[in-house]
Design a protein around this nucleic acid. Structure first.
Lengths: 223, 223
DNA sequence: TAGATTGTTAATCGATTAACAATC
DNA sequence: TAGATTGTTAATCGATTAACAATC
């Protein structure tokens, strides 16, 4: 990739950490207090040394022969991602996907909250979803800078994505979470995280195709 | 990763191909007929040799000095993923995310169609979303094998994900697209594609954090 | 103590990038 | 033809895996 910004933490690690977090949260609920990488590795199908390295990025230190204290580990990951201080975000495009994201309260856990939604359709403007009012798109840029919002979510159709991004950036947004399957052009210093669902689907279906061809797939139920 | 199945095509390539596809589709619409990797690379911020390698996996051959015929390229990608023959899928968990996926017609383009949805809540059973009726969960396994469905989508809450997976697998499903942020245990020969949205969010927010700390972020609008 | 686990350094593996001949 | 682009082979880079000493 050209123009790749320099981040010291490998992205695969970044992607695995939330997975550890969810898993550890469950483990804590189940009454456990201490866990080893061997244990985590068995449940998550990962190699223990890799887990150790990943966790080390959050700054935590384990105890040889014992392992890690789950509670401390959870705090360490929260601290690492900054989930303690809430990030407020704007969302553009109140279709099904947009509504799903607005309604999904689960992001609060990750210090993320959608505080306003924008759309062009008069049918939806003024309505409220999950406590969030839908405002006309024309108000986006202005409100963005006034409220000092730094993160934007795009859930518009393809053709509207670039415009939404432009308005966001004009309002000072520097991080865009893009669910539209479209290429967004942004100036340097703006981070775009593409979340194209079709990608995951394509990977799954290709793997299935290969599995089927190899003839190794489960023909029937266990036994 | 332990137990990693052997796929000959690198997953990064698999993830880039749908991106090329979307991009090329747009390019074709705009009237262009032929494209070079240099051109694609400029628009998608990728290195041309990498694009060439990726495209080669689909079996296509370009013409030196000229490039690739977009239409042929699109066909080649469709063929590669098998998007011509439709895959029918079941979905479990008709919450917001579930509804968003059901309503989203865009997956048809990728040979993917949700043909039935399942839930436990009497409030939703019998209702119809996007032409898909919601059936009681108890009917899942039976209907699965009768209709010979091979792909399942999980959009349940955390705690219900494993049960949904078990019922799917009992019905003969071999590919699971999992949107629940939970670890699913499956027997060998079943492919699970996890689509945890929090992961993308975490990556974005961490990159932003690093960007902010480096002081290199865009303070204001262009100019 | 003995055994298990951490943390770290070295080796391996795979994907990306660079180099370059072949081609229209 | 000259220049641009493909396709392929080699070099580089980075992440994963293996090895092992340190530790409780």
């Amino acid at each position: 990739m050209i123009n790749k910004p320099e981040f010291s933490i490998p992205e695969p690690t970044l992607r695995r950490l939330p997975r550890y977090y969810n898993y550890l949260k469950e483990l804590l609920k189940s009454g456990r207090e201490i866990v080893s990488c061997t244990h985590i590795g068995k449940d998550l199908d990962l190699d223990p040394p890799q887990i150790r390295k990943d966790l080390a990025y959050t700054g935590i230190r384990g105890v040889p022969k014992v392992g890690y204290q789950i509670e401390v580990l959870l705090n360490s990951i929260e601290e690492f991602f900054g989930w303690n201080n809430m990030d407020e975000a704007f969302l553009v495009g109140v279709g099904n996907m947009g509504r799903a994201l607005i309604d999904y309260q689960g992001f609060r856990r990750y210090g993320f909250k959608i505080v306003a939604a924008f759309d062009n359709s008069p049918d939806i403007i003024g309505k409220t979803f999950g406590g969030v009012e839908v405002l006309p798109l024309s108000k986006l840029t202005n409100l963005c800078s006034r409220m000092n919002i730094k993160i934007g979510v795009i859930t518009t159709p393809d053709h509207a994505a670039q415009e939404a991004a432009d308005m966001m950036i004009a309002g000072g947004i520097i991080g865009i979470w893009n669910f539209a399957p479209a290429e967004i052009r942004t100036p340097e210093g703006v981070i775009v995280q593409n979340e194209n669902l079709a990608t995951g689907l394509a990977v799954l279906s290709k793997k299935l195709q290969i599995l089927k061809q190899s003839g190794k797939f489960r023909q029937e139920v266990d036994q």
